[in-house]
């Protein structure tokens, strides 16, 4: 697909200065978002709940009317040519919206019929897709008895029935077992290598890292960063961080915790210190303290960090240099507070 259309092909998705303000809301749900997705790319839209991802996708799939700005898919404008958009896109939602009155195979053939795919083509394609997605055995059932994983695969099959140019996947592997997840990842890559442009949202950073060519992280209606996973990981100062585990006698814990944090922050070369609470990896020993220290070069800080902890009246339990994960980039950018 890329080769056919050439390098100068216009983007698959182009969003410019998009603003959406819901009636009765004081803030913009999407607040001046611009990005482009090239043809044949897998693009990840990440962000905490309420960041504006769903609204952005809503605008791109014609379910939400933008307040300002523009969005286009394959050069069709969402406001001026919704029919043209609907012909070119397919949407796989988070929760099943499969037609429960139809049989599994009919769900596919009717979807294709809605999109004007000729009968012979749609019948053959339905059988083929059901087979390839491992649903061939149960194609004459209704979906009531389908498991979450099967419903998800069926929704993907349905999405492919009209050969869209752009596929929207909203948290595609949420709630799936590891087998289904791996299977879907494989399929998503295979589809992409056949030329399908994919925009996906996910909270699974590992998934985003594995699948996406490029990732945009959104928060409060704005895109904070938009780059390749590798580039994003370099965003954390120094590219590495130091995890510091310390111990202070429980009685003085409250004061000690703040003291240690202040001492670490005062250490030369430290950009930012986060205290990690209630980490699953941490044993529940009273008095245990864990910090993440971001720095230009975390490994040169080992000595001075230890001294800082000691100087604040606590003991050092463990120091380890961490390679950054996408999750850390995400937390670094969007903070730790709950939404």
């Amino acid at each position: 697909m890329l080769a056919e259309t050439g390098v100068a092909a216009p983007p698959a998705i182009a969003v410019r200065n998009l603003i959406k303000r819901y009636p009765k809301s004081k803030t913009n749900a999407v607040d001046g978002v611009s990005f482009e997705v090239s043809r044949g790319e897998i693009f990840g839209l990440l962000g905490p709940n309420g960041a504006g991802k769903t609204t952005t996708i809503g605008v791109l799939t014609t379910a939400i009317v933008p307040t300002e700005g523009s969005a286009a898919i394959m050069e069709a404008d969402v406001s001026r040519d919704p029919i043209g958009i609907k012909q070119r896109i397919a949407v796989v939602p988070q929760q099943s919206n499969l037609d429960r009155s139809l049989k599994v195979r009919e769900i596919l053939t009717f979807h294709a019929a809605y999109h004007g795919v000729p009968r012979k083509t749609r019948e053959a394609l339905a059988d083929k897709l059901l087979e390839e997605l491992g649903l061939g055995q149960r194609k004459n059932e209704k979906v009531n008895r389908y498991s979450g994983g099967m419903a998800q695969r069926l929704m993907i099959a349905r999405a492919l029935m009209h050969a869209p140019d752009v596929l929207f996947l909203d948290e595609p592997t949420n709630n799936l077992d590891p087998q289904s997840r791996l299977f879907l990842w494989e399929r998503i890559r295979a589809l992409n290598s056949n030329g399908l442009t994919i925009l996906l949202t996910t909270h699974d950073m590992d998934e985003a890292d594995r699948l996406c060519d490029r990732i945009a992280i959104m928060d409060h209606g704005k895109i904070l960063v938009n780059d390749t996973p590798a580039q994003l990981k370099k965003m954390i100062p120094g590219g590495t961080s130091l995890e510091v585990r310390a111990f202070a006698p429980p009685s003085e814990n409250g004061a000690a915790s703040a003291k240690v944090k202040a001492a670490l922050e005062a250490t030369p070369g430290v950009a930012k210190v986060d205290e990690l609470r209630d980490e699953a990896s941490q044993n529940a020993e009273p008095g245990a303290l864990t910090y993440r220290v971001y720095s230009e070069s975390a490994n040169t800080l080992i000595g001075s960090a230890a001294q800082a902890v000691f100087g604040a009246g606590a003991q050092v339990r463990d120091l380890s240099v961490k390679q950054p994960s996408l999750e850390e980039v995400f937390i670094f950018l969007t903070g730790r507070h709950l939404r």
Partner: peptide, 8 residues
């Protein structure tokens, strides 16, 4: 996964 873009 067969993806008959061209056919359709």
């Amino acid at each position: 996964l067969t993806f008959p873009l061209a056919d359709i």
